[in-house]
């Protein structure tokens, strides 16, 4: 028991929680935005991979870190446009299109990366985001050191969750997005263009996913390698359900999830005799459990996965 308490009482754990949660917050908010407008975006895993690669490559070629994030966002937006063209304009199966986008985006990012950065013994690195100290916050007891260990994108993620919560529930734009996700025909009767809303939500949502991926190469690590996203995208899809499609709860879900992840990492080193793979499995199993607990209770956007065609029911 004392091991567990020691781990929970350490500032290092909570600093890691925020760090692990950051890509998940971006990804979950991105997926949430798409789904609120009625489009399931399973391209997330590949889009995060591409964002990680594109952001890293931009910085490697001399761009500054914020430009790197912007490049990732733009690249993500382009894949969002592709997914929207397939699922909104053509009304294809959102499951299969999303998988297609994931397979394409991830293999394309490996291809581009290998083309530009030939295989070498040690992967090339960049200088990642450094932690920032916010004056005032840094002096707080216990919380201070935790916050001082964070890089700017983490603060961006936290602000983004609040911003998205405000936009979705408190603005006309948010109302239009939610209407489109619940009933696009009614939305159109109210003068909303469901096609445009869906395009916008998928493009912006995909840009957020890509920024989440870029956090991995520009802050968490300093290099890019294939398969580095490691299913984080799929975990985000599960977190959206866990969050009942609400940005505030998405933030909570991502933090809770990151807590378990950071906790198991520390437990792994503290406990002997249990294969490390058991610990590595926990994030995926937790996601499945979270899905089972919440799936029945969650309020699914009613038009999720239903293509909208004008004048057709």
């Amino acid at each position: 028991m004392s091991i567990v308490l020691d781990i929970i009482a350490s500032a290092g754990l909570w600093a890691a929680v925020l760090r692990i949660a950051t890509p998940l917050i971006f990804g979950t908010l991105g997926a949430l935005l798409c789904e609120r407008a009625g489009v399931l975006n399973l391209g997330i895993e590949g889009i995060m991979t591409f964002g990680a690669m594109a952001g890293w490559l931009a910085v490697y070629h001399g761009a500054d870190l914020w430009t790197g994030l912007l490049v990732a966002a733009l690249a993500g937006g382009v894949f969002g446009l592709l997914h929207a063209a397939l699922t909104v304009t053509l009304g294809l199966s959102q499951h299969v299109s999303g998988l297609g986008v994931t397979l394409f985006a991830s293999s394309f990012s490996y291809y581009l990366f290998r083309l530009i950065v030939p295989l070498s013994g040690s992967p090339p690195t960049i200088e990642p985001f450094a932690p920032v100290t916010v004056p005032g916050l840094a002096d707080l007891p216990f919380v201070g050191p935790i916050l001082s260990a964070q890089t700017p994108p983490t603060y961006l993620a936290l602000l983004l969750a609040l911003l998205l919560a405000y936009v979705v529930f408190r603005t006309p734009l948010g109302l239009a997005i939610r209407m489109t996700g619940e009933n696009p025909h009614a939305a159109e009767a109210q003068g909303v263009n469901p096609m445009a809303v869906r395009y916008g939500a998928v493009i912006v949502g995909s840009a957020l996913m890509a920024v989440g991926g870029a956090f991995l190469t520009l802050s968490a690590f300093n290099s890019f390698f294939p398969t580095m996203v490691q299913g984080r995208g799929w975990i985000c899809i599960a977190l959206v359900v866990f969050a009942s499609w609400r940005p505030g709860r998405a933030l909570f879900g991502a933090l809770l999830f990151a807590f378990f992840d950071a906790f198991q990492l520390r437990l792994q080193t503290a406990v002997d005799g249990v294969p490390y793979q058991v610990f590595l499995m926990t994030p995926y199993i937790l996601s499945i459990v979270a899905l089972c607990v919440m799936a029945r209770r969650a309020r699914v956007p009613q038009a999720l996965m239903q293509p909208y065609r004008r004048g057709e029911r």
């Binding site: 490691q230 975990i235 359900v241 793979q277 590595l280 499995m281 199993i285 899905l291």
Partner: peptide, 27 residues
């Protein structure tokens, strides 16, 4: 079973189980 019992989308669960299965093999 999770889909029929809890109406959980099997896309996400079957995907997540891929990672679990590889870790089981690794173990």
């Amino acid at each position: 079973w999770l889909r029929l019992r809890f109406s959980v989308d099997e896309v996400v669960t079957s995907l997540l189980l891929n990672f679990v299965a590889v870790l089981v093999v690794s173990m």
